[in-house]
Design a protein around this nucleic acid. Sequence first.
DNA 1: TTGCAAACGGAGGCACCCTCCATATTCTAA
DNA 2: TTAGAATATGGAGGGTGCCTCCGTTTGCAA
Lengths: 207, 207
Amino acid sequence: MQEANDEGRVKSGARAGDGRKPRADAIRNRERVLEAAKAVFSQGGPAASLEGVARQAGVGIGTLYRHFPTREALFEAVYRREVEQLVELVQALKAEASPAEALRLWLRANVAFVATKKGMLAALALATQKNPDLMAYSSDRLTQAVGELLARGAAAGEIRDDIGPEDVLRALIGMCYAQDRPDWQDSVLRLIDVFVDGLRLRGQPPG
Amino acid sequence: MQEANDEGRVKSGARAGDGRKPRADAIRNRERVLEAAKAVFSQGGPAASLEGVARQAGVGIGTLYRHFPTREALFEAVYRREVEQLVELVQALKAEASPAEALRLWLRANVAFVATKKGMLAALALATQKNPDLMAYSSDRLTQAVGELLARGAAAGEIRDDIGPEDVLRALIGMCYAQDRPDWQDSVLRLIDVFVDGLRLRGQPPG
DNA sequence: TTGCAAACGGAGGCACCCTCCATATTCTAA
DNA sequence: TTAGAATATGGAGGGTGCCTCCGTTTGCAA
């Protein structure tokens, strides 16, 4: 009768309403399933077999379903995680590269993401249709992340300050949208270089 | 030259290599399956049951598979047809409305399309991933169609001539991309009105 | 009419979906 | 350390959908 949990939205994971900590094996298995799901969805798209995911994760199908009661829940968890990784990449790049270069590398990483995870994109189309919040959430997170890169560049006088993060994301989406030919990646990578060059301020500060 | 019968690449239907005409019942059933598939995919998305399609079409599952050997083939046929209808709508609107108004109505029709056929969008994401030609084909057809509307408006001095059909389509896609809230349709319809107003030339010709 | 190629429909074998519960594992408190 | 409670596991099972195969039906030409 306790257990009204089911959490704000996220199910299945850590303690929330009830102050209890999940068991160690539960955490481990949850992780395994997520890892396997990432691979399987990337490869096979949104209709990929969940039993296949469980097999690859080395857990029973029942375990998979306890952690993620629906296909959408599983996909959503995988996707949120990917978004989080892209956000973290921003932090890492800030430490390693000049502002403009960091932006360029981050955009390139996104292209790689799209290219590697083809199936995930189709799955995303399905998932956002059933749960619009997911799109809103990821847009916010990514906008904020790009915003940091831009602000840093602007502060350093390396990048113009009249282009907002939404514009950059929209450009990225637009460029990745037309996956009409086998060599679309090359094309988009070139476009990104051009785009970042366009964002650069010409009169460079010392350094 | 009437008809050229649809077949650009499409398999399954009419004569091609062999000069034989398909049987009447074959044509009829093919049509029924397409109609049913449109409804079922729109409602249920790309994973919808093909046996369900066959049931709704009133044909056996074997018949469905003879006409469309794979799920993708079926979806592709449905989608090509939808694109064709949007193209035909352009012709109809040219006869019925002023250039700018025709453009406005056509864009609105696209929003309705997206709204009604939610499932089709997810299916499209899947299908284009497996067959990039499909995207290229539909882009071309739609670009050409919008191009006609724009050219007509420009010729009549109603619409500016420095915006190309690709720009208009990109704007449309961009506006429909953010289906993040239940009332996204209202928002997009407003944006379309604004957009078309923006395309209008101020000094209007007589009429 | 008749003959036959073309088309039909659905049975059958297999994979996957998801639920349920007997069993196994982890945690806690003594 | 250990026992018992709480929690988690895994896979059997009933149902649905996928797709192939083939005996039967139908349209069409002669």
